[in-house]
């Protein structure tokens, strides 16, 4: 009796192991894999990266309407850019989200907090907004939430990258999570914070010192990744601004 039960448990475990990517139980994700897996595999091979992905890093530039996917084979290796996706729709203006309903796309250092295979916008990945910085710097008692990177081309505070592209990014993220990367970082910037663009921001927003102070704290993280191709370890000071740890 016990032997039979143990056998069944072992069988179930092995089945689970075989289907370690539980996302494949969902039809849209399975379809995404069928449609995109070969393409992504070839992309990773061209870049000299292991596939399925081990570690991912996403970053979004609001001005440029770009979502970049970077990957690395292990903690020791720097990240390599895999693909840059055009963002189809993104509501709001430059500047962080500070209250519920402002339709702003947040800016800051986040991670993918959950995956939704039943999204109204095909597939969606939740961004961990609000973080500690947002909660401290919010101008309202309710900072809002439910910020997603999703399919389709509509946005109310979200990042819409069309159905075909979300299938690629979602499937990569699902695999990286299945491979043990619990927190996939996603960093949202107002623009590429190069010297040129940062100076343009400083000039255009010269009468908004609070915003510039916030962007200056974001720039540290941008610069670190730009130089090292490694995800920065970012802390949040007592005023809610980011700093490199």
């Amino acid at each position: 009796m016990f032997g039979r039960a143990a056998f069944l448990i072992l069988l179930c475990c092995s089945c689970l192991k075989l289907n370690s990517n539980e996302q494949l139980w969902y039809a849209r994700v399975a379809d995404a894999r069928d449609a995109k897996d070969a393409l992504l595999r070839s992309l990773f091979q061209k870049k000299g990266l292991t596939y399925p992905p081990q570690r991912l890093y996403l970053r979004v530039f609001k001005s440029e309407n770009v979502l970049e996917v970077w990957a690395s084979d292990n903690n020791m290796q720097p990240f390599t850019m895999v693909k840059s996706y055009p963002v189809c729709a993104m509501s709001g203006q430059l500047g962080p989200k500070r209250k519920e309903g402002d339709e702003q796309v947040p800016e800051g250092f986040y991670h993918i907090s959950s995956l939704n295979p039943f999204s109204a916008y095909h597939l969606s990945m939740q961004v961990s907004y609000p973080n500690a910085s947002d909660r401290q710097l919010t101008t309202h008692s309710r900072p809002g939430g439910n910020i997603y990177i999703h399919g389709n081309c509509k946005s109310i505070g979200c990042i819409a990258i069309t159905d075909t592209y979300i299938e690629e990014v979602y499937w990569l993220v699902a695999q990286a999570r299945a491979n043990g990367q619990a927190n996939i970082p996603v960093h949202l910037f107002p623009a590429r914070m190069s010297e040129l663009k940062y100076n343009i921001l400083l000039h255009l927003y010269r009468d908004k010192p609070t915003l510039l102070k916030f962007w200056s704290s974001l720039k540290q993280g941008y610069d670190y990744f730009q130089y090292h191709h490694r995800v920065p370890s970012v802390g949040i000071d007592q005023n809610g601004y980011y700093f490199l740890q």
């Binding site: 440029e64 309407n65 040129l196 343009i200 921001l201 255009l204």
Partner: peptide, 26 residues
């Protein structure tokens, strides 16, 4: 990245539009 000089030849609106061009550096 000399924006002070660039403003002699460009309006603020035009400089803002350059943010949307996906070229981090020139």
């Amino acid at each position: 990245a000399d924006i002070a000089t660039a403003t002699r030849f460009a309006t603020d609106t035009a400089l803002g539009l350059l943010l949307y061009v996906d070229e981090p550096e020139i």
